[in-house]
Amino acid sequence: MSIRRNAAAAAIGIAALLTAFGAAAQTKAFDLSPEQAGRVHTTRIDAAAASIPAGFKFVKDGVFTVGVSVGDPPLNTYATDAKTVIGTDADLASLVAEGLGRKVEFVPVAWDDWPLGLTSGKFDAVISNVTVTEERKQRFDFSSYRQDVLGAHVALNSPIKSIKEPKDIAGLKVIVGAGTNQEKIVLEWNRQNVAAGLKPAEFLYFEDNGASLLALQSGRADVEVNPNSRLAYSAAVGGKTRQVGVINGGWPLTAEIAITTRKGSGLADALTAAINGLIANGKYAEALARWNLTAEAVAQSRTNPPGLPKV
């Protein structure tokens, strides 16, 4: 899974949520202010700071410069001032910077442009929902920090209790994104079900998040399977849906989201140490819980973990 929307699309996404749930509900659920008074902080993590290679040169002295592709909340989005970057990944970037004894600075970048920006030295790292793949590992180093997770969400009054394996979607009307990794997964699940003599699923496609929500509430759809981060945020903001399962985005393999750095720069080990320090001191869990993404936590950060294979 990867965020590919630009700033304008991010604004549309926020507006759609405001329309669907009401401004008061969103303000109550999450802090979208530029001040971010509730952002989690940490002290310097000595083991991480000591792991920075002696010859590594940061973009700016005393600063950890991070490239971000700004999309829908709760990952990287804009605050109510339409310019301050906030969200789960922004919080993680801030914590890692503090762990290294540095300040954080964000550089918004279009999704397609982050590889060039990173290799050319425009920023020290990219923290923007990047999935580890074996192909990407040929060009970049990684420090894992979240599971790549899809969520299965239903209306609050739905009788559905669990969506975790192929048979669970048999005969259901499933909302999924067209041309996405999650579509590939549920289509394969459906293929297996039909081969086993189970009822086929029906797949529904909506461009608008609000339309998907209305389809679930009206009974036109039974379940939505899409990136867990967006669905979990929507559930917390509106209180009209609930999670009935999570599916790894690499199914049947395991995929992880990671901080991305230049290949061979040596910074990845320091970032991995910083994340593990945050896991140990509890700040990592606090940051995920703040945006309702506890389900995506990893037990341990790893440098260059196994990635999804080349297609």
Rank of each mutant, 00 (worst) to 15 (best):
F140D: 00
R262T: 14
A20I: 02
G307I: 10
R139T: 11
G179M: 00
V149T: 14
V109I: 13
A299I: 02
P115A: 01
T88F: 08
E35N: 10
G177A: 15
R139K: 15
V109M: 05
R102M: 11
Q147R: 14
D124G: 13
I127H: 02
R290N: 10
L150A: 10
P159G: 06
R242I: 03
A258C: 04
I175C: 00
K199I: 07
L198T: 04
L253A: 15
P200A: 08
I12D: 15
G282E: 01
S128K: 00
L100G: 05
A54M: 00
A287N: 02
V298S: 04
L213G: 05
A79N: 04
V311T: 08
K240E: 12
L116N: 14
A268C: 08
A178Y: 13
D72M: 03
E135A: 15
K199T: 05
S218N: 11
G245A: 07
D148S: 15
D91R: 06
A7N: 11
I3S: 09
W189E: 05
R262M: 09
Q243D: 11
A270N: 10
T77C: 11
A82G: 12
D113I: 00
V246Q: 08
E165S: 09
G38V: 11
H41R: 02
I257W: 01
G266T: 08
W111T: 05
A211N: 06
V130D: 08
A125C: 13
G249D: 02
V66K: 04
